[in-house]
Nucleic acid binder design. Structure first.
Lengths: 149, 149
DNA sequence: GCTCATTGTTACCTATACTCACAATGAACG
DNA sequence: CGTTCATTGTGAGTATAGGTAACAATGAGC
């Protein structure tokens, strides 16, 4: 457009794009019919990065949401048998979240959904442009984290 | 990380960043205490781009949401006196949405909120990097639009 | 042993956007 | 003219994602 306001526009673009990412992601997830919402998918994916089952609080921090939000997500995933709450033997306050075999299987299928969704979104960009975009987004994300410390 | 999955990661980064944009935007809006939510702010801004008052349907298309969603947003803005619903004399089905003087005033204040929010988000990037990011995001957005036609 | 911090959860609220159904209106056409 | 069909906005209800506040159970420090 002709607005002399690149900064405001950037936020606008980001939001607009993400609404789209959400929609596309949701559609690809629904197509697989696994009963997994985008946020649950994200938690599942995050879970796979841990060596040993993390605590709820760990997940909350990693996902950048309040602990209460994690409870709801885990509830849904547990109802579908994708994760399991296991009590920590050394500290009875904490519950650790474990991927079930079914959860691992689902994760594999989700990877396909994620890939096709990403491909659909990023289609207009060349490989090189995608790399640049990745670096820029990383900078933004890390910048924010650094500020907090 | 070490995940050999740049495409899935990009979507992830985008979503993560936008959650943050949302939070920051919301905080900056609340600070001004204008009773305007992020989505309402976006509608208000969109409204300013029209020469003559658009129809609800126009706004829905521009905002890329279903018409029903616009109703709710306009309800909120109208309750605060920022916009006005005016019947179209030539077609009694359509309602046109008009910015009030107060709405225009609010828009000016919002610009400040938007700028400071954007500055906070984009702080880690140089001017040049911001431009590149803008172009890339634009490409993604336009690519999607082009595909639809 | 008392106080205080940590951990997850119950209960509730908000924002955003969706579908479906519907009433009012306009347009097309026999 | 009237019948049919498309357009336009909205009521009703739902889903997703997140947030706050209060709380009970537990652990840690002194």
């Amino acid at each position: 457009m002709t607005t002399p306001d690149p900064e405001g526009l950037l936020a606008e673009q980001l939001l607009r794009l993400t609404r789209r990412v959400h929609r596309i992601q949701k559609r690809h997830l629904e197509r697989r019919d696994l009963g997994v919402t985008p946020a649950q998918s994200r938690l599942l994916r995050t879970l796979a990065h841990y060596g040993s089952p993390p605590r709820m609080a760990d997940l909350a921090e990693r996902l950048e949401v309040v602990p209460r939000a994690v409870t709801t997500l885990v509830d849904g995933l547990e109802a579908n048998g994708y994760v399991r709450r296991v009590p920590d033997p050394t500290n009875r306050r904490v519950t650790r979240i474990e991927l079930t075999d079914e959860g691992r299987e689902t994760l594999r299928e989700l990877r396909g959904a994620r890939r096709s969704a990403a491909e659909e979104i990023l289609a207009p960009l060349t490989e090189k442009e995608r790399q640049v975009l990745g670096v820029l987004l990383d900078t933004l994300i890390d910048g924010e984290v650094a500020k907090r410390c």
